[in-house]
């Protein structure tokens, strides 16, 4: 590990329901993310990858295990300082912006909450930063395309200058050409702001493009952790990771005969 961990999870478990309906969404998950590192969490729906992000972000209050962020052990309730340190971008750009709030309002809200002054200049700069013209400032979400909305969501996350970014499938609701623009934007912002990030995705190619390391989750457990180099070398050990890797290569009747039937 190049530098000390800015975020570490020890045996994180999350369960929903009780009694017979108990579902263990995340089971004893342990991993570290170093300062400046981008870490990918890969898995299919129900694997618990998004639940992990919700627990880290503070949206989920009932989890157990250890969580240390920037040297501070975290409890379910977070401080305002924590929210300035860590921000999140959601999957659905249509659902993550308040339908009645203009871009201006969406961006001034975090500034007001954290009592950061100089809002006017900061908002214009945040828009330029994510590649939007300041003329977008007074538009409503319904006047924006999916890609533009996601840029606004990224601007909103970054306007409080966090050190850690949680990205929950940030491009899976977008067209591929727009995905490329957003991924490029995130990579540029990473360089400019020295961000650390956890990127959750079902798309191995996106994770390989954005991250250095990744963890593969299945049924709430991490089945394998590896570097992107290992992934590129097609060297995953776990059969599930291999299956994911094969499936992401497109449809192939022959290969499918070998892996498809095991599910």
């Amino acid at each position: 590990m190049p530098s000390p961990a800015i975020l570490s999870l020890r045996e994180l478990s999350v369960s929903f329901g009780r009694g017979a309906d108990l579902v263990e969404a995340v089971r004893r998950l342990t991993f570290d993310v170093a300062e400046g590192e981008w870490y990918g969490l890969v898995g299919e729906s129900g694997s618990g990858k998004s639940t992990v992000l919700r627990a880290i972000s503070g949206l989920l209050l009932h989890w157990s295990g250890g969580m240390v962020v920037a040297g501070e052990p975290q409890r379910p309730r977070r401080t305002r300082r924590f929210h300035k340190l860590l921000q999140m971008v959601f999957q659905d750009p249509y659902g993550s912006l308040h339908p009645r709030h203009t871009v201006d309002r969406a961006l001034s809200e975090p500034l007001a909450i954290h009592r950061i002054g100089d809002a006017d200049r900061r908002i214009d700069r945040a828009l330029v930063d994510v590649g939007l013209d300041p003329s977008f400032r007074y538009r409503f979400p319904h006047q924006l395309s999916g890609g533009q909305r996601q840029r606004v969501a990224i601007a909103r996350a970054l306007i409080v200058e966090p050190r850690i970014l949680l990205l929950d499938e940030p491009t899976s609701a977008l067209d591929v050409s727009v995905q490329a623009e957003i991924l490029n934007l995130l990579r540029r912002l990473r360089g400019e702001h020295g961000l650390t990030a956890i990127l959750v995705s079902h798309n191995l190619a996106v994770v390989a493009h954005m991250c250095e390391r990744l963890g593969v989750m299945q049924n709430g457990e991490m089945v394998e952790e590896m570097s992107v180099g290992q992934l590129r070398a097609a060297a995953p050990q776990h059969p599930y990771t291999r299956k994911l890797l094969t499936a992401s290569g497109g449809y192939d009747r022959q290969v499918l005969a070998a892996v498809g039937e095991t599910a």
């Binding site: 503070g58 305002r80 993550s96 954290h114």
Partner: peptide, 8 residues
């Protein structure tokens, strides 16, 4: 969720 995460 987003405003909650902003610490509101």
């Amino acid at each position: 969720s987003a405003v909650r995460l902003q610490g509101a």
